[in-house]
Design a protein around this nucleic acid. Structure first.
Lengths: 236, 236
DNA sequence: TAGCTCAGTTGGTTAGAGCAGCTGACTCTT
DNA sequence: AAGAGTCAGCTGCTCTAACCAACTGAGCTA
């Protein structure tokens, strides 16, 4: 029955063509319209909220959710963490998933990226260099590429494919991977290598050489993979 | 606070290394352990259930969920349907996502599929031929390839990559796409073309010719795309 | 021994009350 | 008259308590 309530609320959104952010009926209204108790309404809304279909704001109202990939990130993250603690190579599988998808995509955008995007990517790699060079006061130690910069690079790279869904899915995979990695294994590494690899990906894509671009991506992921498997994970 | 309860239950699963199917504390037990009312416990469990982290069986108990991609399918399906009704080309985006991923993957398995899998794929294509030839009593009309056969073909194709996560994600995309397509647009088409294209994909992969395999996949998806965009969608 | 019944456990649903966050109009001060 | 503070009201949040419904398993009956 709880399932049924969820479906009816979803149907409400579909039938009325409600866009993201549109306000939904209040809990008492839903009680009456669906003929169920408040508790059941709330449980259904909680489930829909967990799926990103609905957004609840305390003291304000219930709204149609952003329908982002956020729930997928959370689910994927939990699944990966749980698998990791059970001794599976779930984190490696997640990385391979990203590698497979990005390797496939890089081929179709090599040589086809607009100049504006290329400029933006150049700026991002420059910023990585700056961040890698900064030592934050530690003598003789290089800095670290900021997480956000790496994320922005990968997001910008695939933007020109003009497929928002694709972009969101890639970002979701990226998010889940980084969330798990920072939680479980944090391996020190040389950020300058990361910079060089990003620069090579960018140059390869700019040149339009598909094979070179694929090789660059594979090398980049190979680097991450090495850092993953080298150390024994820090248990909790 | 509801959020907090969810996190604590997730932590319980992680900390105790509970595998899928393991039983969780009963609702009264969780009430006591977490110090909250039954109502709050239930709302948290509902949300976790929606994410596939937990599985609830009436009159039996609560268990650690299968952590499958099922919730992702549901979210993706809803998102696509809602987008479609709002006039976006969400279904096309979903198809492009599948095409991008599968095109990338086909390159890395061309010529590397075990003989056993090839035999299985041969059998599946044969079955498609049979299904396409069957006319179910309609004179002069070819039959239709069963949905399950097509699904099995795509699943078997990527199985040898030995990455369960990858397989599940691909199946999730496939599921979401087919669910939406059958709900929204059902275009009549010649199933024999579909058979021929699957056969070509299989032969290309067997031959180890990467470019041919990519072309075959692209052609297959191009065929689906044509059938998508040709008709005006059937509204509701 | 095979099948049934029934009590106990577990989740499902309802009801009613009070708490907490936000908004907007009203009032008081300047 | 303009601004800031206050309060009433709406909203969702949490709790308690009771009963319903599904399933299990022990015990009884044939």
């Amino acid at each position: 029955m709880a399932r049924d309530i969820q479906e009816r609320i979803k149907k409400l959104i579909i039938d009325q063509r409600l866009p993201s952010g549109a306000s939904l009926p209040t809990e008492p209204e839903l009680m009456e319209r669906l003929g169920v108790s408040r508790n059941s309404v709330r449980e259904a809304l909680k489930a829909l909220q967990a799926m990103g279909i609905v957004e609840i704001r305390h003291g304000f109202g219930t709204y149609v959710g952003p329908m982002s990939m956020a729930p997928m990130i959370e689910g994927l993250t939990f699944r990966t963490v749980a698998g990791h603690y059970r001794g599976e190579d779930s984190l490696l599988q997640l990385l391979e998933l990203r590698e497979a998808v990005e390797t496939g995509l890089i081929a179709r955008l090599a040589g086809r990226i607009p100049a504006a995007d290329l400029a933006e990517l150049d700026a991002l790699v420059d910023q990585m260099d700056t961040e890698a060079a900064a030592n934050d006061g530690r003598i003789g130690q290089p800095g670290a590429v900021h997480t956000e910069t790496d994320r922005a690079f990968h997001a910008t790279l695939y933007r020109c494919l003009r497929n928002p869904l694709l972009g969101e899915v890639l970002e979701a995979f990226w998010d889940a991977f980084h969330k798990v990695r920072t939680d479980l294994v944090d391996v020190p590494h040389d950020p300058r290598v990361t910079c060089r690899q990003h620069r090579e990906i960018l140059d390869a894509v700019r040149s339009g050489d598909v094979l070179r671009a694929e090789r660059a991506i594979r090398e980049h992921f190979g680097n991450i993979r090495t850092r993953l498997s080298a150390p024994v994970s820090t248990g909790n």
